Simulated scan of single mutants.
Amino acid sequence: MADIADFANDLVQERIDQAVAARLALMSTTAQHSLMFCDECDGPIPEARRLAQPGCTLCIECKTADDQRAARYAR
C-alpha cells in the first residue's frame, strides 16, 4: 500500500522529468552549430567534441587553457 511519501516522491520525479524535458527542448532549438576550426588557433575541432558540445568554438587545448585562465582570475 502506497503512503503519502510515495505519492510525494512520484510528484517530485514527475516535476523533475518535466523540467529536464523542457530544458532539452530549449537546448535543441537554441543550439548553435559548432565550428570546424578553432577560433583561437585555427586548428581543427574533433568531430566528437563538436557532437558532444554543440556550439563549441574552441578546440580542446584552447578551451582547457581558457578554463584555467578563467579559474585563475575567479579567485
Score class of each variant (00 low, 15 high):
residue 35 L to K: 03
residue 5 A to T: 14
residue 34 S to N: 03
residue 73 Y to L: 13
residue 18 Q to N: 09
residue 36 M to I: 09
residue 25 A to P: 08
residue 60 I to W: 02
residue 63 K to Y: 13
residue 50 R to C: 03
residue 27 M to V: 13
residue 58 L to H: 00
residue 54 P to S: 04
residue 49 R to M: 01
residue 20 V to R: 07
residue 33 H to C: 15
residue 17 D to M: 02
residue 39 D to C: 07
residue 6 D to V: 03
residue 41 C to G: 03
residue 2 A to Q: 15
residue 75 R to Q: 14
residue 23 R to D: 12
residue 60 I to G: 01
residue 68 Q to F: 15
residue 39 D to F: 05
residue 65 A to S: 04
residue 52 A to R: 03
residue 69 R to A: 08
residue 38 C to Q: 01
residue 18 Q to Y: 08
residue 42 D to N: 15
residue 18 Q to M: 15
residue 43 G to H: 04
residue 51 L to K: 11
residue 45 I to Y: 00
residue 9 N to A: 13
residue 51 L to S: 09
residue 56 C to Y: 02
residue 34 S to T: 06
residue 30 T to W: 12
residue 68 Q to I: 15
residue 58 L to W: 01
residue 65 A to Q: 04
residue 34 S to V: 01
residue 10 D to P: 02
residue 68 Q to G: 14
residue 34 S to F: 01
residue 26 L to W: 08
residue 54 P to V: 02
residue 6 D to P: 01
residue 71 A to C: 04
residue 21 A to I: 04
residue 14 E to V: 09
residue 68 Q to K: 09
residue 10 D to Y: 11
residue 33 H to A: 13
residue 1 M to W: 10
residue 69 R to C: 13
residue 61 E to Q: 06
residue 8 A to E: 05
residue 44 P to I: 04
residue 62 C to W: 00
residue 42 D to V: 13
residue 4 I to F: 06
residue 25 A to W: 12
residue 72 R to K: 12
residue 25 A to L: 04
residue 47 E to Y: 04
residue 14 E to Y: 07
residue 10 D to S: 07
residue 45 I to Q: 00
residue 51 L to P: 14
residue 70 A to P: 01
residue 58 L to C: 03
residue 42 D to K: 10
residue 74 A to M: 01
residue 30 T to M: 14
residue 22 A to M: 07
residue 8 A to V: 10
residue 6 D to K: 03
residue 2 A to I: 14
residue 66 D to P: 02
residue 40 E to N: 04
residue 11 L to A: 15
